[in-house]
């Protein structure tokens, strides 16, 4: 590449500024979460926590009494963290597994099998990519209600469990690129489509399937609107919804910012851990998804 000239120095400075802008909000969450909420308004400039305390985390997790929490500017409400974490895990995991698996099957059918009307049906599926979710959300909500599935995991999971147009589109593009010769060789050996799909296509597509799974997991974990509508009750409430409820439970007039930030960090923690564990794979795979 080129020598370290003025241009490259400027570029490095820009990159550095970018990283600061990206990371600062994460730091600010930490700083606020470790502060005493009642002291926060008086010290907006302090870059360090104000009267460092673990109080916010304690009251979010319900480890302090209501009186203690209220004295610290909280509401006495707690996030039932482990329950909501379990719910989020259940929802994200089942959604991801089902969606990716079924989408892969459909993608295989669109990419490799020959049947009448295939391309037209595929075009129809693609058009669904443009249907705004809110348009399907309203009738789906009514449907889920009529099915009696409100406030159940099934209600939260079902709409995304079978397919998304994006997932099918994404995997089809990849399956199209798989070498046909291998497949034909397998066919000569007498393998049916079922064996080819499970024995050949899936193992060979491990990378894009993993990519899609990770993306689906992130999106499903972060989904707010749908679970807010159908999964309001405690027993099926996911973390994102719980955080919204915790926010609105803070005392009228004086939000418990420290508690809120603590709750935010706690809610983001599982994702951050997942991210740290798979950082390389995620960054590489997202790059991958950009190329058709």
């Amino acid at each position: 590449m080129r020598k370290l000239g003025v241009g490259r120095t400027v570029a490095w400075v820009m990159l550095f500024i970018l990283l600061i802008v990206t990371l600062f909000p994460f730091y600010w969450m930490l700083r606020t979460a470790f502060s005493d909420n009642t002291q926060l308004p008086g010290h907006p400039n302090s870059l360090l926590p104000v009267e460092t305390t673990l109080g916010a985390f304690k009251r979010v997790l319900g480890l302090s009494t209501i009186e203690e929490a209220q004295a610290q500017g909280g509401s006495g409400a707690a996030v039932n963290f482990w329950l909501y974490l379990r719910n989020s895990l259940v929802v994200a995991t089942i959604t991801t597994v089902c969606q990716v698996f079924f989408s892969a099957m459909a993608a295989y059918a669109f990419a490799r099998l020959r049947w009448p009307g295939r391309d037209k049906v595929f075009a129809l599926f693609l058009a669904a990519l443009m249907v705004p979710p809110i348009f399907t959300t309203l009738p789906n909500f009514v449907l889920i209600k009529n099915l009696g599935l409100l406030n159940s995991f099934a209600g939260i999971i079902l709409p995304g469990a079978f397919m998304t147009p994006f997932a099918i589109f994404f995997l089809r593009q990849f399956f199209l690129g798989i070498n046909r010769e291998l497949e034909e060789a397998a066919m000569i050996d007498g393998a049916g489509h079922r064996r080819i799909f499970f024995g050949l296509i899936i193992p060979m597509s491990a990378a894009p399937i993993a990519t899609l799974a990770i993306l689906t997991y992130i999106n499903s974990w972060n989904d707010y609107f749908w679970p807010l509508l159908v999964g309001q009750q405690e027993n099926v409430r996911v973390l994102t919804v719980a955080l919204g409820v915790f926010r609105s439970q803070t005392p009228q007039g004086g939000p418990d910012w420290a508690g809120l930030m603590a709750a935010t960090l706690i809610a983001a923690l599982p994702m951050i851990i997942l991210f740290l564990a798979f950082a390389k794979r995620i960054t590489n795979s997202i790059g991958f998804s950009g190329i058709k």
Partner: peptide, 30 residues
């Protein structure tokens, strides 16, 4: 942030409010 937080930070001298807010004003330490 809302009016009581700003009042608590010493930005306002007077704020009108309802009786249900007595508790919140009571927790303003500064």
């Amino acid at each position: 942030v809302d009016v009581t937080t700003s009042f608590g930070a010493g930005k306002y001298a007077i704020t009108p409010n309802g009786s249900w807010m007595l508790g919140t004003y009571g927790t303003l330490k500064q």
